[in-house]
Amino acid sequence: MLSIKDLHASIEETPILNGVHLEVKKGEVHAIMGPNGSGKSTLSSVIAGREEYDVEKGSIDLDGQDILELSPEERAHLGIFLSFQYPVEIPGVSVTNFLKTALNETRKARGQEPMSAKELLRLMREKMELLEMDKSFLSRSLNEGFSGGEKKRNEIFQMALMEPRLAILDETDSGLDIDALRIVANGVNHLRSKENAVVLITHYQRLLEYIKPDFVHVLYKGRIVKSGGSELALELEAKGYDWIKEEVEA
């Protein structure tokens, strides 16, 4: 489904990604781990289409289609979803209006009829229940004054509504207490199917206890330096990243 080959990306002439290779097939869950500053968030931003990054080399294909020339919205229409590490506060735009616009613009781009207000509300209620969210949440301004946990839950709520083919979760676990983590993980697991894929970007192994990955990759200095099964995450948790750094330097 997602095929990244030899990806080099930089921001303001500072190289961040130095040849990333990653193959994600549908139905799979991949975890990308690595120390701070290794390029994890850059990778997710580049996949989602953030324009500040310059991609100098390499390719990103989704189902065989080159997406590098596509705008962020076009990528979303193809089914890519990025759960932000730091969701942006947007005063004055209510969660409902935002979701209505996002869903219907996406449907429009896919040649589908817009969703009726009633249908939309039913869908939102269903997903809110899944994420144990309060109704009052819908009329609040998008992320404004939300706690860290509420922001993350809102991201997963959006994901549940958009039903993406490829979900990238950028440090969704950071700043979550154990209950919120369980709820968020529940939401992600609910989305998992044979048809879609999930890429989890995380610092800690903690999230992976709830969402079991099929593959774990270690990103370091802008390259994937080690890949393995879920046991690799446990090893990293126990031993830290120093041994990986030493392996790479050697």
């Binding site: 932000f84 996002a102 869903l103």
Partner: peptide, 9 residues
């Protein structure tokens, strides 16, 4: 970027 990444042109 946040809005665009949610499919809003």
């Amino acid at each position: 970027f946040y809005l665009r990444s949610r499919g809003i042109p």
